[in-house]
Nucleic acid binder design. Structure first.
Length: 223
DNA sequence: AAAACGGGGGC
DNA sequence: GCCCCAGTTTT
């Protein structure tokens, strides 16, 4: 059966169900940082480290680097080699070290030593794309904008909320259909859901709390 | 649109 | 051994 049009999705019910289901489950690494230290710079650094890297590694690497460089000025003073060593074994550590140092220098020289709020300014930082910029705005400044990572992209399509091929298409399509009050929380919810049950390769549909809202066919719920 | 960046852990 | 991982940039 085809999914109901996105405009008729019972978003409130689905999201409430997800919230209840995920209550008590572990937070993704960047949200952890946001809870511990809701500082835009800390969000930026841990998000840059998190790209294509598992949560546990991201968390440990972020802690080491931020303990040593808690602000843009301190980070800009570290060498690329020092940064690379601190964030190892996060993936792409050499590229990330270069981007982190370069971004920190830009923050000091052109942004008054602070992390900018505007999408435009954030996107000028090396190594910062729409996903990272939106997450910094969401968690660091409480500003709207849907942060689309692979989990949000995959699950929004699985659930029939959007039909898109690129994350950027998902971002604009989701903003068309999803009530604005969910723009910030949707990311963490779908990431947590996507890291466990609704994972990329073998989603555990038999235990899915929102199974009845999912249009996937050929998957039977088992007792 | 596809490739490159990249080491660690799961299977 | 081969796969993936809170993506971004370059070709």
């Amino acid at each position: 059966m085809s999914p109901p049009p996105a405009s008729e999705q019972p978003f409130e019910e689905i999201i409430d169900t997800l919230r209840a289901f995920l209550r008590g489950s572990r937070l993704p690494s960047v949200s952890e940082v946001a809870q511990r230290m809701p500082d835009p710079f800390h969000i930026l650094v841990s998000t840059m480290i998190s790209l294509r890297t598992k949560d546990e590694v991201t968390s440990a690497s972020s802690k080491r680097l931020l303990a040593r460089a808690p602000d843009p000025k301190k980070l800009a003073e570290l060498s690329e080699a020092e940064i690379a060593k601190l964030i190892y074994p996060a993936g792409f550590y050499n590229t990330k070290a270069k981007n982190l140092k370069s971004a920190a220098k830009t923050l000091v020289s052109r942004c008054g030593g602070r992390v900018p709020e505007s999408m435009e300014k954030l996107l000028e930082l090396p190594g910062v794309g729409r996903k990272t910029a939106n997450l910094v705005r969401n968690l660091g400044y409480g500003l709207d904008g849907i942060c689309v990572d692979t989990h949000v992209h995959r699950i929004a399509n699985r659930l029939g909320w959007v039909q898109t091929t690129t994350p950027e298409q998902t971002e604009s399509a989701l903003e068309e259909v999803l009530p604005q009050k969910y723009w910030i929380p949707i990311n963490e919810l779908l990431v947590r859901f996507g890291q466990t049950l609704c994972n990329p390769v073998s989603p555990v549909c038999s235990r899915c709390p929102i199974y009845e809202h999912c249009p996937r066919i050929g998957v039977k719920r088992s007792r």
